[in-house]
């Protein structure tokens, strides 16, 4: 089922005194139930503006956004809150509020004027908490939670709103790697099991490539490209959006590399895991690893170490650190 339908949307800023500033335009895309979608794009491409526009916090310049078949601007605040929930990047400072009370606030659009929770409300709150695995946290004060725990609770709060769409603005920004992976897994599970659509903006390309069903790629020129992560890599779109000076995207591994071959070329012989990491070390140092060319220096991976053959002179090293240090000296000499 289609949750969000965007037609020829233009986003940006309009004010009385300044000319209209278009951040991105001609955006036409849909979002279905059960999908986890990552919005990616370089800094300044307009990810936040798009998220704000979709959340109804900022009017679009032109075009249409339909949420569950209804135009966004026709929804009153309460109707909108029942269809759409948000999770923001910033830490929430909620003082003397327990994790449970915070999640319970998500029932806001459903409760009466006093905010009293009915049995249904309570059970939805509990379900949301269990869904994100935050049950051990319920008694704790929000101010005592770690960033990862807090973000989990915020997702539960969004879920307690029982929205059709959850928007998350860089939800993993302050988390360490294991917590990020965990958060993405939670969101994936949530999209799958509860049949909701989840859209998150992220700077974490690697994680997005691995866990999103679909990517929305916003280029700095303000165009949106959509597809499965792998499709976008194969078509070269991913590379095009993130290309910049001195950084190279490796389509084989799906990772970015600093690409400067200022140190010249080198030959590498060996196999296995040690080959992979030796290659990484050499690339980091600025070497381009090439196939056979006898005039170049050559590195052989031995049982217990590394051998560098330079101008017919072999030299052995017991660690990559020492090898690299020696290569640096040669490099300097060559430049002189």
């Amino acid at each position: 089922m289609i949750v969000l339908e965007i037609q020829e949307l233009a986003i940006g800023y309009k004010s009385a005194r300044r000319p209209v500033h278009v951040v991105a335009d001609d955006i036409s895309v849909t979002l279905k139930t059960g999908e986890l979608v990552c919005l990616l794009g370089p800094n300044g491409a307009g990810k936040s503006t798009l998220m704000r526009t979709l959340a109804g916090m900022q009017p679009p310049l032109s075009g249409q956004v339909h949420l569950m078949g209804k135009p966004l601007e026709d929804l009153n605040p309460n109707e909108l809150a029942r269809r759409l929930a948000i999770v923001l990047t910033e830490r929430v400072e909620a003082g003397h509020l327990s994790a449970y009370e915070l999640v319970a606030l998500g029932r806001y659009p459903y409760t009466d004027w006093s905010g009293r929770l009915t049995e249904t409300d309570e059970s939805v709150v509990r379900w949301a908490i269990e869904m994100v695995g935050a049950k051990p946290l319920v008694q704790r004060l929000v101010s005592e939670l770690s960033d990862g725990e807090r973000q989990k609770v915020m997702v539960a709060r969004a879920l307690a709103q029982e929205p059709d769409l959850i928007l998350l603005d860089e939800p993993t920004a302050f988390l360490d790697l294991p917590r990020r992976v965990e958060m993405m897994q939670t969101l994936r599970k949530l999209a799958r099991e509860t049949g909701r659509a989840v859209l998150l903006s992220s700077h974490d390309l690697d994680l997005a490539l691995r866990s999103a069903d679909k990517l929305w790629l916003l280029s700095s020129k303000g165009k949106l490209q959509v597809g499965a992560p792998e499709d976008l890599i194969l078509s070269g779109a991913f590379e095009a959006v993130f290309q910049s000076e001195g950084v190279e995207f490796d389509r084989t591994t799906g990772t970015f590399r600093v690409h400067t071959h200022h140190a010249g070329q080198i030959i590498l012989n060996g196999e296995g895991l040690r080959l992979v990491w030796t290659r990484r070390a050499l690339e980091r140092e600025g070497f381009q690893v090439v196939e056979d060319d006898s005039s170049l220096p050559c590195i052989e991976i031995l049982e217990t170490g590394w051998r560098l053959i330079q101008a017919g002179q072999p030299e052995n090293f017991s660690s990559l650190y020492e090898l690299i240090a020696a290569l640096r000296k040669i490099d300097l000499l060559a430049r002189v």
């Binding site: 605040p77 809150a81 759409l84 929430v92 909620a94 998500g106 659009p109 006093s114 905010g115």
Partner: peptide, 20 residues
């Protein structure tokens, strides 16, 4: 009472929960 509670999370969240 109810909007005041929602405001504990800041205006952006409050708005997203339906507070005018």
């Amino acid at each position: 009472t109810k909007p005041l509670n929602a405001l504990l999370l800041g205006e952006a969240y409050a708005r997203s929960m339906g507070v005018n």
